[in-house]
Design a binder for these strands. Structure first.
Lengths: 362, 362
DNA sequence: CTGAAAGCGCTTACAG
DNA sequence: CTGAAAGCGCTTACAG
């Protein structure tokens, strides 16, 4: 802190070099652990860096060596209103993003997050903005069309989450097929439910399409009756799920014995809508989710659902992106395993109040 | 996509200029809306940009104009294990970060997030890394000592959250005093509880200190008996809260009539620990939280707590930082208002099942 | 309105 | 081991 050159302007490597009595090349080398600087040189540089509290400018580094050590993550926010009551709707996304971030740290990368409003038409503008600041980007579901992705992928490595791989981009998803099949078999086989409905998510979501397809196939295979189609079209949100139920009940439609929801959020809305009409879950209708977000176990009844390895998906997305950035190849479609979590909402017995496996927060 | 120069190397502004038949200065101007380019010039540039899918490099821009349009956010992760079952413990932080991000978007800034493991000794190294990539940084609670902050603040604008302002940094917090006072008055006054305990958070957290201080003062003022001290020392986590209760019960200590927890997480742990011993909340013991994280209303009993304007705190932190980055001054300690949320865990009557204000997710 | 040129703060061959 | 110098891809006075 002695004779710091900390005038108006920024402190640069020149200031450090001057204070240490060496060249900027030497400062750069000791800071980056390149070469084998003489102990005394290293010592003097480090002292100067300490005295000045010098922090090298990452933009200059990036420009010089072509690596920003930043990955961007872009996703959609629930609503257009800025601070509306979104509650848990972003739990899934937050979980993924945390996985990305933790994995990024290990490679000393940082994560630039950017959300886009659900009806924001400037999505591609924002994505481009993030792309300019990153070495590669991770796109959550429904951010860009396939051709949009293909175009962007020519400029920068891209990994999509719960999407579809393209020639140029990699996708990381979960095993929707096995999960849905296990769920339907449990509902129809173990509980003997003969009448099932699938309350869908966004029609254009690859995850939703896969779940819907397997639901139909598996239910049909075991001879269960199914309800699907426009009347059962939700949008991954709690209110979307609630609305489907409200409309159904309003027009006197018959409820199935079990409602398989496209995700946990939807199931949450369904349970509330049913409760409002005095219907009991699972006694009158069984309800299941998909994702296993943290609140799922706290609901009453606790939610039977398919657990996706949420943080691991984020971590995997980063690792795959990292290897693309590093010029390595690799798989173009990665499918992570899921697990059926049996709780109360499907009709299984409630867990005992002391459930060691859930730990204190459970 | 005609004669793109997209060889190995990066596509640069030179490629665009060549394709458009203008100088790089012109390209830069139309891209940034500077000056008044001739319509034809603008047109040709835009066409070239489109054909090439050109995305300008943000590092080069930043180096040139001294602005990265990035703010960093640094916080602590719950545990040292990478993917342990952290559940809702990060809800509060995620909420803040979302507020930061949404506010940043309005100024076309992006947010670089970086978490530090709870026992990670390299916190300052990570912070420095983020600092080099940002125009300013937002530090969550307990990231750096006061002197550490003061030092770093000489290099880069800093805003702390739930901390204390320093000469060089700004702090954004909530009105702990009013919130805690209202809570204690409700417990002692409205419910008539004469025996209260404060289960504290991290001893070195400014928020915790303020809450503890006001708890004592307010409870004493209304003539209630209080329990505090080492036996009631938690750490903001559910397991910390559960442990305090378990120890107390194990050594046969007497429970107070109401337990005021330092935050919602702690309350969650307390409620579980009590349930494990067959004690009922609020009949045997009332329990309250602080924060009002989204799950608070889903607990059974639903949690009486103090609502902090979580996203707004994040948004405010960004705005304050932004004005510092822009060279403007401003307050150095900003205190946001809180609100007492009366639910079941304090002994208030359960809300009717249909609660319009909570909406579908509620 | 437009172009040539300098400069932003680093890294990294290239000599010595 | 160390230093002088070029170069990374932009932006922005400065002339014209």
């Amino acid at each position: 802190m002695t004779e710091a050159k900390r005038s108006k302007g920024t402190l640069t490597i020149y200031d450090v070099a001057r204070l240490a009595g060496v060249s900027i090349a030497s400062v750069s080398r000791v800071l980056n652990g390149q070469g084998t600087p003489r102990p005394e040189t290293r010592e003097r540089v480090m002292r100067a860096v300490g005295e000045l509290s010098f922090v090298p400018d990452a933009s200059a580094r990036a420009l010089s060596n072509g690596l920003k050590e930043v990955v961007g993550v872009v996703f959609r926010r629930g609503g257009e209103a800025t601070f509306e009551d979104e509650d848990e709707s972003l739990l899934f996304i937050d979980g993924i993003n945390r996985g990305v971030e933790v994995a990024a740290q290990r490679r000393s990368y940082d994560v630039l997050v950017s959300s886009v409003g659900v009806h924001d038409s400037h999505a591609s503008t924002r994505i481009a903005g993030v792309a300019g600041k990153s070495d590669g980007i991770i796109l959550h579901d429904r951010m860009l069309s396939a051709v949009g992705i293909a175009r962007l992928a020519e400029m920068i490595p891209i990994v999509t989450l719960a999407g579809s791989p393209t020639r140029a981009s990699v996708n990381v998803g979960c095993d929707n097929d096995s999960g849905m099949r296990a769920l339907v078999n449990h509902l129809a086989g173990d509980h003997g439910y003969r009448h099932l409905a699938y309350l869908s998510g966004h029609a254009d979501s690859p995850d939703n399409r896969a779940r819907a397809r397997v639901f139909e196939a598996a239910a049909t295979a075991v001879g269960a009756q199914i309800q699907t189609g426009p009347d059962w079209q939700g949008n991954y949100s709690a209110s979307g799920g609630a609305q489907v139920i409200a409309s159904l009940l309003a027009r006197g439609g018959a409820l199935p014995r079990a409602i398989v929801c496209a995700n946990d959020q939807t199931a949450l809305g369904v349970i509330h809508a049913l409760a409002r009409q005095g219907l009991r879950v699972p006694d009158d209708v069984a309800v299941t989710g998909f994702d296993d977000v943290p609140v799922a176990r706290h609901l009453h009844p606790s939610l039977t659902t398919i657990r996706q390895p949420i943080e691991q998906m984020g971590a995997t997305a980063f690792e795959v992106l990292y290897s693309r950035i590093s010029g390595q190849g690799g798989e173009s479609n990665i499918v992570l395993p899921v697990r059926l979590m049996l709780r109360e909402s499907c009709g299984c017995a409630p867990a005992s109040p002391v459930t060691p496996s859930l730990g204190v927060g459970g």
